[in-house]
Design a protein around this nucleic acid. Sequence first.
DNA 1: TTAGGGTTAG
Length: 616
Amino acid sequence: MSSLTNMAKHPTISLIKSSTTLKELKQIHTQLLVHGTLNNPHFHGQFIATVALHNPTNLPYSNHLIHHSLHYPNLFTLNSMIRAHSKTTTPHKSFFFYNIILNSPNNLSPDNYTFNFLVRTCAQLMLHVTSSSVHAAVIKHGFEHDPHVQSGLIFMYAEMGCLKSCHQVFGRVQNPDLVCQTAMLHACAKCGDVGFARKVFDEMPHRDFVAWNAMVAGYAQCGRSREALELFHLMQMEGVEVNEVSIVSVLSACTHLGALDQGRWAHAYVERNKLRLTVTLGTALLDMYAKCGNIGKAMEVFWGMKEKNVYTWSSAIGGLAINGLGRESVELFSLMKKDGVHPNEVTFISVLKGCSVVGMVEEGRNHFDSMRNLYGIEPQLEHYGLMVDLYGRAGHLEEALSFINSMPLKPHAGAWSALLHACRMYKNKEIGEFASRKIVELEANNDGAYVLLSNIYADHKNWEGVSNLRHKMKIVGVKKLPGCSVIEVDGEVHEFIVGDKSHPRYDEIELKIEEISRCVRLAGYVALTSNVLFDIEEEEKENALGRHSEKVAIAFGLISLKEGVPIRVVMNLRMCWDCHDVAKMVSKFYHREIIVRDRNRFHHFKDGECSCKGYW
DNA sequence: TTAGGGTTAG
């Protein structure tokens, strides 16, 4: 029973490998100790490796077993420990085990597994110096031409954003195999060159389901959601195996498009085909529901998940926040901490958003302070921006300004923009002008700086100010980002860009918009024309407002969706106040629920009211 | 007995 092949079939090895939970493994450990079986180094090694491989949270237990063992760990065990640590938030610990291999008294030496795992550690660490020395060690130990190590190196350089190095490694591979080609296509997509990724994919002589998944994910991750879904449909037509990894990318694409129907289809696919609801899949699913405006369903998925990680919690907390449930999001954050899950920087973005949408200034400030004091997380620019947003939305403009001035980092345009938005909300011209100037100093082409200030001037009927800004924008060459809204009807995503009349049903949409205008006017509605950038005639302005992309999408929803079906719109800008008022009225007149996801949050319109209660 | 592709923000 000494050969490894025979060992693999040993019932004790099988027993250890088949256990999935730490509890089960600990029970087996006790049994093996009682029978003295753990004296066998093979069993002991397998035990430690299984504990480590199943779940990174088991790692302290694996470490404990290694340190209290009578045996010197073998290469298999040590490689397993390197691999396990490469997937944690403390990847540098892999080097501890690598050094045990290098300094081993029984002449262990690293093999291709060691290096394949070690380069993944480097990928996680993203340190150029470390990566270079590990690459040098790969060459020194003669693994430069090992296909697995080559793929690992490409992966490592991709994570670090060094596409050039990926090309160099790939160029030296004589006959790249499937795994290596997939690593390369993944690397190109990761570094933003999806075109080349697709070229690698198209030129692959054989593609398996992993290669297809990598390509679908590549499109989804760089925001080319429609292409991701198209490729996924092609994948299905070609009869390629679909697994939970494919569905994660599909869900991510649906989330970005706000395509709830297709997202629901993906959920049904998971259930129909009994795919394993992994943490990643569950998180993608809950995130899809939350960002497509169905927070009830999102939380149902969340509570149904057996295993939750920091992604899952952050996603749920953020989902509640963007749906206006700030208090609930902060409560969920408390539960997360009670559950022993350590928050990360993204979690705090979600929590601060939660505080911001309901104006919990004090609580937000406490959470912000706890980042550094309790969790050792250094706040990033985004966190500072959210704090400005928190003060600003609550109307504490002076505090927001002094907060920016006391930042230890150089304030970015985002922080000033948050302040400018608040100035717009509270019609504060002085601070608004100051913030706008600061933004333009940092980003001369920032359209928001001009548009918002122009709105503030228009609020004050300062048409000269508006006209001067218009002139300045022309000279500098700033263009207002065109508004774009999408709406899904019968599984098809329709896109409306402001001013674009190319939709085949545009004439009908136009008629509907006129009908809406008549209805809302009867109710005594007066358009909030200050949302129009320039000083044009009142009637013309109203017309320009009538053609905002969100209104066009809502009108299209009214003519194309069956009665009673909610209208769901996803847009790229913040919803304008006028469209917001009109949407409220439409929800009442047409007895239709309207859900708009804007750049910042959700607005649920029902019976003439909006869930944001005017606070956004 | 270990080797690929996936989830949270901006």
